[in-house]
Design a protein around this nucleic acid. Structure first.
Lengths: 353, 353
DNA sequence: CTGTTAGCGCGTTCAA
DNA sequence: TTGAACGCGCTAACAG
């Protein structure tokens, strides 16, 4: 593939010379310029004569040189062109939208995304963040809010933009780009109340797993109390992830309660879809016997019958704006003062309520 | 937040002590050991006396030290504890399962996942891989096969394990952990033929977008020809991503053809689900009027009515095994000789065919 | 078990 | 516009 360079003098590591990664000095030798010129071609091509640059570019191709961000970043005290992101689960398609927006925004500035999956574990999350910080990334995006003081102190020293995207904290660690889980849940609850439902059930993932579940529950309870209703613990259930759990909890709140729910708000995951499917299996009229509302506007929500009422969270936009903010900060743009950006949500009323 | 450490004696770099990232020498000074001892505590804790280690650990916590993988990796000529992965789209939940398996396998060995999204662009894919290589990762996982010779030569020099996971090539660049798209498509086609369907439609994403679509089409056509049938171009359609496209193409092949399809095999994305939903809207009997089969066993496939016949691809296992192979290679385990690992697939027959 | 010495590959700084 | 010298923060190799 690549000719054995006239390198026999300095490289005797292996009989297969191709095995060795080319260094900048190799490129310089082939292009017959100094190492510095190669470095400039890569970082500030404008400051190099066209002919020189072409010779260097050719040499880069010929040697298969790949820049060493370890050495470069070390010397420049700089950061690698990577933004780290930590989400609870890459498997959850809801996070995927945000990641896509983030990747798209970063790509425009030549930044890459490094993604970590904490598997809903705080310990793993901390380990991940530390591991990523050791790579000296240009920024960090976390889904969950930064809470532990150890992490706060480490991140403060890292001096990089940190964006929290999972919920809109009033006092973010650094930046937050999100929506209010509490307000969203309250809005959906008010919608159900306006529709005349009074025994409203609430199903979410365990608040121990994620604080967002707690925020949503709080929003739900607040809206009920505003309407003069006291939340009934009998109508509040926890579900594991997955469609099937939506169906299971629907049956629980509707068929296994002395005073059954007349509406159920599924605040997590894809439970709302599972509930619709289960209702059909049971032959229950939706929303006649029980109304069903969901938190997130998954792709299938408008397609099933009855179409599912839900909240639309601007997932992609959250990721994109998070990326934009990081880039702005890196460019030293005048601080846009607002540290917490609320991208809101929309109530999408469909046939299921 | 964090108390200003009692550090005034040793750290006078700045009035705001918290602002500067701690270096290993700072930790050493605080722990009153040499810098080497700190380094050992981090990498080979067993080789350090317990008391010493505890002093060092305390100092690490006190200083908020975060290891610098740039400097460490540079010196050790080693690789950072990161495995890079490049997929066409993080938004596609099918890739998410593989990523989860990969992350899980890597986590066991202290490796982290850096994820890139090529947005189905070959140019972007190459740029991403180069960018990741500049971070000197320990391994690389790519969904699409490595084709370009430039990339092949760069990767050869990088001398890291490279795993292709999107299809089972007979001659992978390095390693492949996957299943045969062609065989899977042929298997589903044979199933439809056995059921007695003769005018079988085929819908996939554009073969220009991904080579896998072409492999699946080939498998489909091969199985038809084995049965003595000639593929009818009228019954082969391309769809964009998304549920709705499944419905659109179903109508196209069933209602807009002189000789309509009696079965349709949706070889891409979530089209099969969209088709089932559309059939219900149209009031078509499935499989009476038209049978519907899909490639991938998405979570909702068994839940809708009629439940969807499909192929089950071991997505998670593919990611996990890819991670395992990378780790084995890094540990220098005896080469398991097989470079292409076929994890197969299963035909899941449900009510829709 | 702990410390000393040297240098990884590149970019900053300054000179030519 | 190009080049030479130094050192970023850490770890391999060795010595004690």
């Amino acid at each position: 593939m690549i000719k054995k360079q006239a390198a026999s003098t300095h490289d005797v590591r292996s009989p297969r010379n191709d095995g060795a990664a080319a260094r900048m000095s190799d490129v310089a030798r082939v292009a017959r310029v100094s190492l510095m010129t190669v470095s400039r071609v890569l970082r500030e091509p404008d400051k190099v004569l066209d002919v020189t640059r072409e010779r260097v570019d050719a040499a880069i191709r010929q040697t298969g040189y790949v820049h060493n961000a370890l050495a470069g970043g070390l010397r420049s005290q700089g950061r690698t062109k990577v933004v780290a992101a930590v989400v609870p689960s890459v498997r959850n398609s809801l996070f995927a939208g945000t990641l896509q927006g983030l990747a798209d925004a970063l790509r425009a500035d030549g930044l890459r995304l490094a993604l970590g999956d904490s598997d809903y574990s705080k310990a793993e999350e901390t380990a991940l963040i530390r591991a990523f910080l050791s790579l000296r990334p240009s920024g960090l995006v976390v889904h969950d809010a930064i809470r532990s003081t150890a992490l706060r102190s480490v991140l403060a020293r890292a001096a990089i933009p940190v964006v929290e995207v999972g919920d809109l904290s009033r006092r973010p660690f650094d930046l937050a780009v999100s929506y209010s889980n509490r307000l969203a849940a309250a809005t959906m609850t008010r919608h159900l109340l306006e529709r005349g439902y009074r025994r409203i059930g609430f199903v979410s993932l365990s608040p121990r797993l994620t604080r967002r579940a707690l925020e949503r529950l709080t929003g739900f309870e607040t809206a009920l109390r505003e309407a003069g209703l006291e939340p009934d613990p009998e109508l509040i259930a926890e579900a594991q992830p997955g469609f099937a759990e939506g169906g299971r909890t629907l049956v629980e709140l509707v068929a296994r309660r002395a005073r059954p729910a007349d509406a159920v708000f599924f605040a997590g995951d894809v439970h709302g879809i599972g509930a619709i499917l289960e209702a059909r299996r049971q032959g229950w009229d939706v929303p006649g016997k029980v109304a069903i509302a969901a938190f997130d506007d998954v792709e299938i929500a408008p397609e099933i019958t009855p179409a599912l009422t839900c909240l639309r969270i601007p997932r992609y936009e959250i990721g994109f704006e998070a990326g934009r903010r990081i880039i702005a900060r890196l460019h030293g743009d005048p601080d846009e003062s607002t540290r917490a950006v609320d991208l809101g949500f929309r109530l999408i009323v469909r046939a299921s309520t």
